[in-house]
């Protein structure tokens, strides 16, 4: 493939998982207590997708990565200071809420419109990346809905590996039961790929990459269009944390066997 891929990664911010996440009723509907005051990170599932996208782009000359984020502009800016140093990408920002209670149909509509509006979009080179689920929502439907709105029939979820082949075709490993993968062949773009964890570590910060990215990221944040998505027609009668309270511990030097044993015991209590 001579012209490379146009990889659009959908991903937004979520509160740092170490924070105390306490559901609360807000004037805008359900949310988390002090949500906008909490430090945020790029949704870890979307982050996997972004790093895989950058890796694929680096291996496929002519490719370009665009991160499309719908989230509070101020929080996006904070998160970009770290993420922007990891891999080269361009940012398209939509200024709106990014909590776990927004209606995925509304979000998907906004994202799909933003993808269609990307300058020079070439569907024959388009790969739509994202997390197969999210740290703010376990349903994992938004990416699929965006794909449908863009009329992309080839969708893969739980992706751990994408191997480009000749003439734009590629092979995909999707997670299935029992820790195994399903192998699929796709004739080529456009396609939707909802990433699981992939196989790449988190890239180290590189300030040179950061400075190059920031020249485009900061203007993109400045001109982020408002995207006031809501909770749709969904009415939340009550919101509560899971029955089993989270108990965070930091333990040093624990073997994987001991960790597994403790997890099994914990699950068995439920």
């Amino acid at each position: 493939m001579s012209t490379g891929y146009q990889i659009v990664v959908l991903g937004s911010v979520v509160p740092d998982p170490l924070q105390t996440l306490e559901p609360a009723q807000t004037p805008q509907g359900p949310g988390l207590k002090n949500e906008l005051m909490l430090p945020h990170v790029l949704d870890p599932w979307a982050a996997h997708a972004l790093y895989e996208a950058a890796n694929l782009a680096a291996r496929t000359p002519g490719s370009k990565v665009t991160l499309l984020s719908l989230g509070p502009k101020a929080k996006l800016q904070q998160v970009m200071m770290a993420v922007g140093q990891r891999v080269p990408f361009e940012l398209v920002a939509l200024d709106g809420p990014a909590g776990g209670f927004t209606d995925p149909h509304e979000v998907a509509a906004r994202l799909a419109d933003a993808v269609k509006a990307l300058p020079g979009l070439d569907r024959s080179r388009l790969l739509l990346f994202g997390g197969w689920e999210s740290a703010s929502r376990g349903a994992g439907v938004t990416l699929q809905l965006v794909g449908e709105r863009l009329e992309i029939p080839d969708q893969f979820q739980g992706v751990d590996q994408l191997t480009p082949g000749p003439d734009g075709a590629f092979e995909v490993l999707e997670r299935v039961e029992g820790g195994r993968h399903q192998v699929s062949s796709c004739a080529g773009a456009p396609a939707v790929l909802g990433w699981a964890t992939g196989s790449l570590g988190e890239p180290k910060n590189n300030p040179q990459v950061g400075m190059a990215n920031m020249r485009a990221i900061m203007p993109a944040l400045q001109k982020a269009a408002p995207a006031p998505v809501g909770t749709g027609r969904v009415e939340y009668l009550s919101v509560a944390v899971p029955r089993t309270q989270r108990e965070t511990r930091i333990v040093k030097d624990m073997s994987p066997d001991d960790v597994a044993r403790e997890l099994v015991e914990w699950i068995a209590q439920d």
Binding site: M81, N205, M214, M218
Partner: peptide, 21 residues
């Protein structure tokens, strides 16, 4: 966000990146 304002580097993304690194 609070620190960037108080310590006056809210407009300096080079410094914000250095802080994160």
């Amino acid at each position: 966000d609070v620190r960037q304002l108080m310590w006056r580097f809210a407009e300096r993304y080079d410094l914000q990146m250095l802080v994160q690194s």
